[in-house]
Simulated scan of single mutants.
Amino acid sequence: MATTLRDTKGSLVARAQRQMREHFGESALTTRQKLALTCRILFDGGHDSGLAGQITARAEAPGTYYTQRLGLGFDEITEDNLLLVDEDLNVLEGDGMANPANRFHSWIYRAREDVNCIVHTHPLHTSALSMLEVPLVVSQMDTTPLYDDCAFLKDWPGVPVGNEEGEIITAALGDKRAVLLAHHGQLVTGASVEEACDLGMLIERAARLQLLAMAAGTIQPLPHELAKEAHDWTSTDRRSQANFAYYARRALRNHPDCVTTGTTEGKAL
């Protein structure tokens, strides 16, 4: 017999969160493996734009992070060909050079101690939306993790290889997890690789939905309190872990060469 049909929404939310903590946990994958998988996941998710874009994650030593080698596309990244760089983009481990545009990642990591992963890409629909010089509008339940959590940089500062662009983009991001960059693309951050990957997938879907809705009529806003509730409900670490595990399983089926150390069999993704 059912015992929860008269429970309050608050108690049911708390119950679901307890269950997610029990059933979803930390991944056994390394940071390198998660980052390589994120490159493949986002490639399959429409984030490919030639060699444009950078995906980084903090490494073990302060002031260092992992990133892909300039000259390789997201679909070519493996845990073995990632670079370890310092804040000046000097390569500490690996062969080749980092994308010079990684410089603004150094600025964000310095300003935001809560950020451990940054995804900056030029996906098709997000880039198209950026050409209109309008902010991202979150008006659909699935995209509420970005509700009131996506900043907007209206003025394009040019090619982001200088320290000036690092200051401008970091200031525009502020304390939010994402920023839409006019005439450019998108940037999302996460406390974990999993969170940043999830938001990277989501912002492209949100941009596509916005363009479709704008073409059909006027987008109607979500009620603020309900949207904020949905944002918080969908923004937990366990949700990020569960979403990423699904994306990772799919990526490994499509790109089994991505993870090269040992095997993923028996590992918690």
Rank of each mutant, 00 (worst) to 15 (best):
L5P: 07
R6K: 14
L12E: 15
V13R: 15
R15Y: 14
R18W: 02
M20C: 02
E22W: 02
Q33H: 02
K34I: 01
I41G: 07
L42T: 10
G46D: 05
H47Q: 05
P62D: 12
Y65E: 04
Y66I: 10
L70Y: 10
E79Y: 01
L84D: 15
L84M: 14
V85G: 10
V91F: 04
L92K: 12
L92S: 13
F104I: 06
Y109R: 07
C117V: 01
V119T: 09
P123G: 06
L124S: 10
A128P: 00
L129P: 09
L132R: 11
V138I: 14
Q140R: 12
T143W: 00
P145Y: 07
P145V: 07
W156H: 14
P160W: 04
G162E: 13
N163M: 10
A172Y: 01
L187W: 01
G190C: 07
E195A: 15
G200R: 05
L202V: 08
R205D: 15
A207N: 10
A207V: 04
A213R: 02
G217R: 07
T218R: 12
E225Y: 07
E225P: 03
A227T: 11
H231T: 04
W233R: 12
S235Q: 11
T236E: 03
A242R: 05
N243Y: 03
A251P: 06
A251V: 03
N254M: 04
H255N: 12
G262S: 00
T264M: 00
E265I: 01
